[in-house]
Amino acid sequence: MTARPHPVPVLAVLAALAALTFLVLLPLAALFAEVLDQGIGRALAAFNDPESRAAIRLTALVAAISVPVNTIGGLAAAWCIARFHFAGRGMLLTFIELPLSVSPVISGLVWVLLFGAQGWFAPVLERLGVQVIFATPGLVLATLFVTFPFVVRQLVPLMVAQGREEEEAALTLGAGGWRMFWHVTLPNVRWALLQGVLLLNARAMGEFGAVSVVSGRIRGQTLTMPLQIEALYNDFQAPAAFAMAGLLALLALVTLGARAMLEWQTRRAVDAQVTPA
């Protein structure tokens, strides 16, 4: 590290810290203060409520489906985009990143347009007796859409930076496709992949807008944890809402902590590649 020419004025540091305090730190503190105000015991009791438990279970289920689907899809897409040159490569990447610039509400709306009461596939679904919207499948689909790009965005830049020489080396040494993938490709991206999976999971569990559109808000059935927070809050059961919000905030904090550690690992992996010893 070279010495920095201009030290940052104390005033600027204070201003930046004040901004972070008012925008980020205080809201978080206020949230946890609300939880602690009511007492830990009472906050924990809120999770005994069957509806809250159903919400937690539903959230876990949605995440348990979305995370593997989008992880496997993301790996396949990253392999194509980072390792091959093909017509429409840029367009494919644009499509994959599209959900990032779409409002969560619209991410839910599109599924209603397909599977809702007046949707394209409504007649088919009715004949089959399957309900998608206002049911778990709709929640999963909306979550899949919203969390779609997370893994690809983590993997592609890293894989491009790493290059494909190691994989080619594995081939010349006699490895087949799967062995190359398991022994070379996957270990090389494991930290970035884990980081992507963590973010994907956090978003899957915390998504609000998209799932609120497809949920129909049936208590005990189609409310995920964020939706349950809203329901409780609007019902003037603020303490229970804060308890659940506190739980999700903890998940976010843990995710950020783990991510910071993984980022450090990834940076090490890239540095080791780029700078010769």
């Binding site: 020489e165 190691e166 080619e168 070379v184 090389n188 590649q273």
Partner: peptide, 8 residues
């Protein structure tokens, strides 16, 4: 390989 391509 030119840059060795050792498995890191």
């Amino acid at each position: 390989f030119q840059h060795y391509a050792l498995f890191r």
